[in-house]
Computed example of a mutant assay.
Amino acid sequence: MKTSVYIRDKINKLPKGYIFTYTDFSTEVNDKEAVIKHLNRMVAAGNINKLSKGKYYKPEETVFGTLQPNQYQVVKDLLEDEGKIIGYLTGYSIYNSLGLTTQVSNRIQIGKNEIRPAFKRERFKISFIKQKNTITRENVPLLQILDAIRYIKKIPDTTINKSCIRISSLLSDLKNYEKQRLIKLTAKYPPSTRALVGALLDRIGYSDDILNTLFETLNPISTYKLNVSKEILPNAENWNIK
């Protein structure tokens, strides 16, 4: 089969918005230069779009114009390595999906054990948040909630009170074993995060010895300024939150 026919056939089978590189064709096509040359010809012809150097995708056309690939696709090479999870979307990337803001940001934040300087990829600014916990597929949803709690003051287009209400709802939806795992993960977060996690779990009526263990990790003379309403978090002072 001709290289051009093989490439077109394989691209036709890919979903729209899926990002690929010349390496996706390397197992069947050995001529790297020929693959790259043909992909660039397809870009020039308007058959595919180029996201950044060496990265292409099938455009999805709507009445509002061409849709950009979703954020996961844009940075999937930074999130997975041969099927292993090495990073996860967090911060500005997931506030909207968690129901914490109506804003959709062009800033992509990634949680990783080893971070690197921020950089741009097409219209997206990509930055990193240091995650000290082991990153696993099961831990990612919990780490995303913990990151939102840690950076609660930076969530755009909302208030601390609204964020506390929404995060309380997210915590309520967790199963008991997930709440226990979340508390264990807080050990590698700042004390202010641990305090707010404890207060929010306490607020929704969660009671467990592990919550008492969490409380004991806090310095009794430290306080954490949040300016949250007493109506929203009536037990705030019990967790040294002001």
Rank of each mutant, 00 (worst) to 15 (best):
M1I: 14
K2H: 12
Y6C: 10
R8K: 15
R8D: 15
D9F: 11
D9G: 12
P15N: 02
P15Q: 00
D24W: 11
S26T: 13
S26C: 09
T27R: 13
N30I: 11
D31M: 07
D31F: 09
E33L: 09
H38F: 11
R41F: 12
V43T: 15
A45K: 15
A45V: 14
N47E: 15
N47V: 15
K50T: 12
L51T: 05
L51E: 01
K53F: 10
K55Q: 01
Y57L: 11
E61S: 14
T62N: 07
V63F: 14
F64T: 12
L67P: 06
P69K: 02
G83D: 10
S93L: 06
L98R: 04
G99H: 02
L100K: 00
T101P: 04
T101H: 06
V104Y: 04
R107D: 11
I108N: 08
G111E: 03
E114G: 09
R116C: 06
R116N: 08
R116T: 13
R116K: 13
P117D: 09
A118Y: 12
R121A: 06
R123I: 13
F128D: 06
F128N: 00
K132R: 07
T134V: 13
N139E: 12
I145E: 00
L146E: 03
D147P: 02
A148L: 00
N161Q: 00
S163D: 05
C164H: 03
C164Q: 02
I165F: 08
R166I: 07
I167N: 00
S169I: 11
D173P: 02
D173V: 03
Y177F: 12
E178D: 14
E178Y: 04
E178H: 07
K179N: 03
I183M: 01
L185Q: 11
Y189D: 09
P190D: 06
S192T: 14
V197K: 00
G198H: 02
G198W: 01
A199K: 10
L200S: 02
L200I: 06
I204T: 00
S207L: 11
T213Q: 03
I221G: 10
T223S: 04
T223P: 05
Y224G: 05
K225A: 12
I232V: 15
P234L: 04
E237F: 10
